[in-house]
Amino acid sequence: MKSLWLFPGQGSQKAGMLTNVDPNLKQNVENWTGVKLLDTSEGYSDSQQIQLSILLLQINEVDQLKKMGWQPDLVAGHSLGVFGAAYAAGVISKEDVFKLVSLRAKLMQSSYPEGYGMGVIVGLSRQEVAELVKQVHTEENPVYLSNQNSELQNTLSGELNAIKQVLELASKQGAAKAKLLHVPNPSHSPLMANVAEQLDYEIGKLHLSNPACIYLANNNGHPVKKVADVKYDLANNLTHPVFWETMINVALEYNPQVSIEFSPGNAFTKLLKVKTDQVSNITLSEMTIDDADFLLNKWKGK
């Protein structure tokens, strides 16, 4: 039975989500990073709180599933999710990944002054959005076509005024939705090059292993089996769009029977269900690990 493990990024975090996390693991994370995880709404306005907490949730879930004997055949992480994915694929150690994400979050928090962010457009094709971006983007007024979340859902990253101009053009052209996202930096655009450079330097110092399964890369949607390619994705995915739609199309060509979405939220299971009803889905934020184990055993037996 082939399984696809999906790791969401930022967006669905909420206060109290760390309640059932292994306290020892939580303590370790706080020791390694020097960051006390508050798990509160106010706390979740800080990048390090968000990113470390989400990663903690995911790694806790991965450990539990693996202890029960489950292994992924394909892993796909969205933005921050690449780190959970890389951990699940056996590429990076627990301590290393938390320290790395801690640094990533810190760098992202301080990388951009106010006035930068992201937007989302639903209902236009990627080509159509690219045309609109071309009409607005200049070096002084930068906006980039960023994430490819689905066939008709794409994001923009850049300077807020430039983004707003593109959103307006999109609405005029018949976009079903064109609005700003609550994200304080222009993630997944060339504007994040500084952060990527520093991450790249830090990752270069770590010992990483070849993935034990197929890792779907954000930066180009390719299925990757070499550690060098995973490394590149972990360091540099912030400067490239997340080609999620392509990643999932490729994943489906490997014929997985089961998908498991790690916490928090269920956004990516929803997107997957629109594409196919041939995959059985588990969303860990909506059930206990024991329930997930039960279902996996049931489906494996079929």
Binding site: G123, S171, G174, A175, A176, K177
Partner: peptide, 8 residues
Amino acid sequence: GSDGFKEV
């Protein structure tokens, strides 16, 4: 329920 299709 589908927004943005006024033109269509």
